[in-house]
């Protein structure tokens, strides 16, 4: 069931409470979940889904998903982490994910940004 306007607004307020200094705080999240359990607000499932969606989007901003076709070393991941941390002015952690469809090269996703340096990406550009 889709969240109504009020539920979305409440989810937004709870989300704001969960972020401390631009980072999602596990303690605050636990506090929010405890409050929801205790008070059982209107449409709790829709509320929690909307809240979870916002938290997931926020966490994605601090995570660099590195897709790769060939092997990728820890040093490369560290380099990517450092570059992204500097670029977004927030701590970013890199996680590797194998994707043979890339043929060669890397694709890094941070939030809604994609950094494309793969052969598949270049071929896709040529095909347009």
């Amino acid at each position: 069931m889709a969240a109504d306007k009020q539920t979305k607004l409440l989810a937004k307020q709870l989300f704001k409470l969960s972020v401390v200094n631009g980072v999602v705080s596990p303690e605050q999240v636990a506090g929010v979940l405890g409050w929801v359990e205790k008070t059982s607000p209107h449409r709790p499932v829709a509320l929690l889904k909307a809240y979870q969606h916002r938290i997931a989007l926020e966490l994605a901003k601090s995570r660099a998903e590195v897709e790769h076709a060939g092997p990728v070393g820890d040093a490369t991941l560290k380099q990517i982490e450092a570059a992204m941390t500097k670029r977004y002015a927030r701590p970013v952690t890199a996680t590797a994910k194998a994707n043979p469809k890339l043929l060669a090269g890397l694709r890094v996703r941070v939030g809604s940004d994609i950094y494309e340096s793969s052969v598949a990406g270049q071929l896709a550009t040529l095909s347009v």
């Binding site: 994609i114 494309e116 340096s117």
Partner: peptide
């Protein structure tokens, strides 16, 4: 000649 530059795109 092949470009090795990283292309950034904003997606949704």
């Amino acid at each position: 000649k092949l470009s090795t530059k990283v292309a950034r795109k904003n997606t949704g």
